[in-house]
């Protein structure tokens, strides 16, 4: 998997956060996606629009190897085709009713999707391939992804990289541009990091978030409000 911006591959979420038989939402550059894992463990990424009436598929649930829409219960198989319409249980739905699957890859502890139609296939990145990665966490940051990339020391033009932050081991940082001025930062540690180190990296993520948002003029302080 190349960490560069070529090929249109984006790191959506930590693999560990997509449990078997569940669906989650994700947004890339303002485009809403439904990310789901079937009973066999395979991840799927579709546009987050139900072919029936356009409701969000990410609010649905996974049943019998298919993604079910919450609103009227239409179910869609792994190829995106509608396999079941509860209001017409005996009907075999026409093949033209289908969700829009995107190319998906799962590696380095992350679920990736290619959101550009001509996206080339992922290529190897030696530093990222050289380690097994332990998930730490993902954070939403209300700041431009390029600013966060600079702050964590990402090489120019990369959305993901194995960073040599400190002597205690490498960190995989991956950035998902959510929309203008907001991103998700995913952090993983090179195996076999101890629990203390994972806690430290999780805290470091909070620190990166706080600083980036301060630079962006966004501060989210809890407290008692009216």
């Amino acid at each position: 998997m190349s960490g560069t911006c070529d090929g249109g591959w984006y790191p959506l979420m930590l693999s560990a956060d997509l449990e078997l038989g569940t669906v989650a939402g994700s947004t890339v550059l303002g485009r809403d996606l439904a990310v789901w894992r079937d009973g066999e463990g395979q991840a799927h990424v579709w546009d987050d629009r139900c072919p029936h009436r356009g409701m969000r598929l990410s609010l649905g649930f996974v049943r019998e190897g298919a993604l079910a829409c919450l609103y009227h219960g239409w179910r869609f198989g792994v190829d995106g085709r509608c396999v079941h319409i509860p209001a017409h249980p005996d009907l075999s739905p026409p093949g033209t009713i289908r969700a829009a699957p995107l190319p998906v890859a799962e590696c380095h502890g992350l679920v990736w999707a290619s959101v550009e139609e001509d996206g080339s296939l992922p290529e190897g990145d030696p530093a990222m391939d050289a380690a097994a990665w332990v998930p730490v966490r993902s954070l939403r940051i209300e700041a431009p992804w390029q600013d966060v990339a600079r702050a964590v020391g990402m090489p120019d033009g990369h959305r993901a990289a194995a960073l040599d932050r400190d002597v205690e081991g490498r960190v995989l940082a991956a950035l998902l541009p959510v929309r203008e001025g907001a991103c998700m930062l995913h952090l993983l540690a090179a195996a076999s990091a101890g629990v203390e180190r994972l806690h430290d990296l999780a805290d470091w993520g909070q620190d990166v978030r706080a600083r980036a948002e301060e630079r962006a003029g966004q501060v989210f302080l809890a407290g008692v409000v009216a």
């Binding site: 979420m13 930590l14 956060d17 449990e19 569940t22 989650a24 939402g25 994700s26 947004t27 990410s58 966490r137 993902s138 939403r140 998700m184």
Partner: peptide, 14 residues
């Protein structure tokens, strides 16, 4: 607020 901004909360809600 989208659940996608809070992956740990999302798993706990589940």
């Amino acid at each position: 607020e989208e659940y996608s901004a809070y992956p740990a909360l999302r798993r706990w809600v589940r």
